[in-house]
C-alpha cells in the first residue's frame, strides 16, 4: 500500500510502514517548517497533514535569487514565495532548505523571549469553626453587650444593683448548664439542685422586678421551664444524660459571654437566694 511523504508528497517505498518522509532532507525540512510556523505565530499543522508550499508566508523580507523565485509584495508587506515551474526538484530541495532555515533564524531573532510566570504557591485555606462563628454572630447582632458594658446608659443607678445581683446568678447557672452538658452523665441530685436553683432565681422578687429592657428575663424563663420539665421527666433516673443542641449551646455561650464582664464568677455552691433581698434592701 503506497504512502506519501508528509513534506513533499512523493510516494514512499519502504518496508517499514512508520516512515513519514523521504530519505534525505524532507524530515529536516519539515522540522524547520514547523519551527518557523510556531515562531511566527501561525498555528502548526496537525501531524500527518501535508503543507502546501504556497502557504508559506514570512513577515520579513528575505534575499532570494531572482532566477529561482519571483517575489510578490502584497499590502501587508508579506512576501509570498512562488516556486518556478522550471526548477528541478533537487535544486528546489536545497533552496527550500536554505530559505526555511533563514526564516527560522530571522523569526527566532524577532520573537521576544516570553518569560513564563513563576507559579505561586496556593495560599493556605484557613478553616473557620462554624460553632465559633455562630457564637460570634449572635454576639454581634445583639445589643445586649452594650447594655452590660454601659449599664448606666440603659438603667437607673438604683436598678443596677438589683440587675447585678440577678446577673451574678444568671451567669453561674448558665455556666453550670454548659458544664453539665459536656459531662457524659450527671447524677439525679445534681440535676435537682440545678433545677431548684433555676426555680428560685426565676421566681424570686428581684427577678420579677427586673426592668423591661433587661435582656435575660425572657430566655431565662424559657430555660427554666425546659430545665424543670427535663428534671421531672428524669426524676426516676439515677444518672441523667444532659445534652444541649448546638444551637442552644451557642446561644447560652453567647449570653454568658455578654454578661461575663459585668459580673464576677461565682461558684454554684456559693450561690445564695434567700438573704439577697434583705442584704440589698
Amino acid at each position: 500500500m503506497g504512502k506519501n511523504c508528509l513534506y513533499c508528497g512523493k510516494e514512499l517505498q519502504f518496508k517499514r510502514s512508520t516512515k513519514k518522509y523521504c530519505p534525505g532532507s524532507c524530515k529536516q525540512l519539515a522540522y524547520y517548517k514547523r519551527q518557523a510556523e510556531s515562531l511566527s505565530g501561525i498555528p502548526a499543522e496537525n501531524p500527518g497533514t501535508s503543507v502546501k508550499e504556497e502557504d508559506v508566508i514570512v513577515k520579513e523580507p528575505i534575499t532570494v535569487r531572482q532566477d529561482d523565485f519571483t517575489v510578490n509584495d502584497n499590502k501587508d508587506e508579506n512576501i509570498v514565495l512562488i516556486r518556478k515551474e522550471q526548477s528541478t526538484d533537487a535544486e528546489n530541495q536545497n533552496e527550500k532548505e536554505n530559505i526555511v532555515k533563514e526564516i527560522a533564524v530571522k523569526q527566532e531573532e524577532k520573537v521576544p523571549v516570553v518569560k513564563t510566570p513563576v507559579q505561586k504557591e496556593e495560599p493556605y485555606e484557613w478553616v473557620e469553626s462554624r460553632f465559633i462563628n455562630s457564637i460570634r454572630g449572635l454576639i454581634d447582632v445583639s445589643d445586649e453587650e452594650d447594655k452590660f458594658s454601659h449599664p448606666k446608659k440603659y438603667w437607673l443607678p438604683n436598678d443596677i444593683q438589683y440587675i447585678h445581683w440577678v446577673t451574678v446568678r444568671v451567669r453561674c447557672l448558665l455556666e453550670s448548664v454548659i458544664k453539665i452538658s459536656n459531662c457524659p452523665c450527671i447524677d439525679r441530685q445534681t440535676m435537682l439542685e440545678l433545677a431548684d436553683a433555676f426555680k428560685r432565681l426565676v421566681f424570686c422578687d428581684l427577678f420579677k422586678w427586673m426592668p423591661k429592657n433587661y435582656p435575660c428575663t425572657k430566655w431565662m424563663t424559657e430555660l427554666n421551664e425546659k430545665i424543670q420539665a427535663f428534671a421531672i421527666a428524669n426524676n426516676n433516673c439515677e444518672t441523667i444524660r444532659f445534652r444541649l443542641s448546638p444551637e442552644r449551646k451557642t446561644k447560652l455561650i453567647a449570653q454568658r459571654f455578654v454578661i461575663g464582664d459585668f459580673v464576677p464568677k461565682v461558684k454554684f455552691t456559693e450561690l445564695e437566694f434567700e438573704t439577697a433581698l434583705d442584704k440589698i434592701l
Binding site: 484557613w126 454548659i178 459571654f257
Partner: peptide, 29 residues
C-alpha cells in the same frame, strides 16, 4: 509553611473558643 499555618489555625480556633466560653484567651476547662 502549610504546617505552620495549620498550627496557627488550630491555636486560633482554640483561643477563640476559650475566649467566648470562659472569657480568657486560653482554653483550660
Amino acid at each position: 509553611l502549610y504546617a505552620k499555618e495549620a498550627m496557627r489555625n488550630i491555636a486560633e480556633i482554640l483561643t477563640d473558643y476559650g475566649y467566648y466560653l470562659t472569657g480568657n484567651s486560653s482554653f483550660s476547662p
